[in-house]
Simulated assay, not measured.
Amino acid sequence: MRVVSLVPSLTEAVAVTVPGILVGATDWCTHPAGLAVTRVGGSKYPDLARVLALRPDVVLLNVEENRREDADALIAAGVPVWVTYPRTVSHALTELGDLLAALGATGEPEWLAAARHAWATLPAPADTPRAVVPVWRRPWVVLGGDTFAGDVLHRLGVRNLYAEHPERYPRPGLTELRDRQPELVVLPDEPYRFTADDGPDAFPGVPCALLSGRHLTWYGPSLAEAPAVLAAQLGRRLTHPG
């Protein structure tokens, strides 16, 4: 089997579970380190000619990361696609198990079993702050309802003030975000790379937690360590003076 992945987290999951079948991946597929496959451009704008030249038996896609027109073009060219769209941790674990089995994995990989255990045994959080979760700046975009990352944070005790918003990624202005009076601002380092010097400055006096975007949004081997990593990062909060 020949597989091309246009989703970084699935690239990692396939590469560490079914070695040898992955022949292509995006330029943004950074895990596992040293992955030696043909690069086919970005997730949003892949080089479809290069993808087709690899003669894949299946191309892995995600509803949020990839464009519908690229999926349609691959299908029109006779290439099967496998489209993922997890909105919860449980959904992600199920999707991963189904995908890996279809790709020939012999039994459930250790990392997936460890991820199931880690999330099933996650202790109840002692702190449940009201939070906003920006994922972009200029303009401000935040996590809304029905998102995988939102479910991750909910399980860790973060009460997203936009969890009931009808849009999955609303675009409130900074004034509105401040008026919500969050007790915590969660700032992941992807897709926008928030840092201690870029993000907390917009919310003076409000504690901010800088989180690993890979552990917050990727659904793959990182899911096994995500509860511990994110819980530790949520406990280390910065407060910008003001």
Score class of each variant (00 low, 15 high):
Leu52Pro: 02
Leu52Ser: 10
Asp57Lys: 00
Asp57Cys: 01
Val58Met: 04
Val58Trp: 06
Val58Gln: 02
Val59Ala: 07
Leu60Cys: 08
Leu61Met: 14
Val63Asp: 13
Val63Leu: 05
Val63Trp: 00
Glu65Pro: 02
Arg68His: 10
Arg68Gly: 06
Glu69Leu: 03
Asp70Val: 01
Ala71Ile: 00
Ala71His: 10
Ala71Cys: 06
Asp72Phe: 01
Ala73Lys: 15
Ala73Gly: 11
Leu74Thr: 06
Ile75Glu: 07
Ile75Gln: 14
Ala76Ile: 01
Ala76Asn: 04
Ala76Arg: 15
Ala77Phe: 14
Gly78His: 02
Val79Ala: 00
Val81Ala: 08
Val81Ser: 10
Trp82Glu: 09
Trp82His: 08
Val83Glu: 15
Val83Ile: 14
Thr88Asp: 07
Thr88Val: 00
Thr88Lys: 10
Val89Asn: 13
Val89Ser: 07
Ser90Ala: 15
Ser90Cys: 04
Ser90Gly: 15
Ala92Asp: 05
Ala92Thr: 07
Thr94Gln: 08
Leu96Gln: 12
Leu100Thr: 03
Leu100Val: 06
Leu100Ser: 12
Ala101Leu: 09
Ala102Cys: 07
Leu103Ser: 12
Gly104Ser: 09
Thr106Arg: 15
Gly107Leu: 06
Gly107Cys: 08
Glu108Ser: 09
Trp111Arg: 10
Ala114Phe: 04
Ala114Thr: 01
Arg116Lys: 09
His117Glu: 12
His117Lys: 12
Ala118His: 05
Ala120Leu: 01
Thr121Lys: 10
Thr121Cys: 03
Leu122His: 01
Leu122Glu: 03
Pro123Arg: 07
Pro123Gly: 04
Ala124Phe: 04
Ala124Pro: 01
Ala124Cys: 03
Ala124His: 11
Ala124Lys: 06
Pro125Gly: 05
Ala126Pro: 02
Asp127Thr: 10
Asp127Ile: 00
Arg130Ile: 00
Arg130Thr: 05
Ala131Phe: 10
Ala131Cys: 05
Val132Glu: 07
Val133Met: 02
Val133Ala: 02
Pro134Lys: 09
Val135Tyr: 01
Val135Met: 08
Val135Glu: 12
Trp136Ala: 13
Arg137Thr: 11
Arg137Tyr: 09
Arg137Asn: 11
Arg138Met: 03
Pro139Ser: 10
Trp140Asn: 13
Trp140Pro: 13
Trp140Met: 06
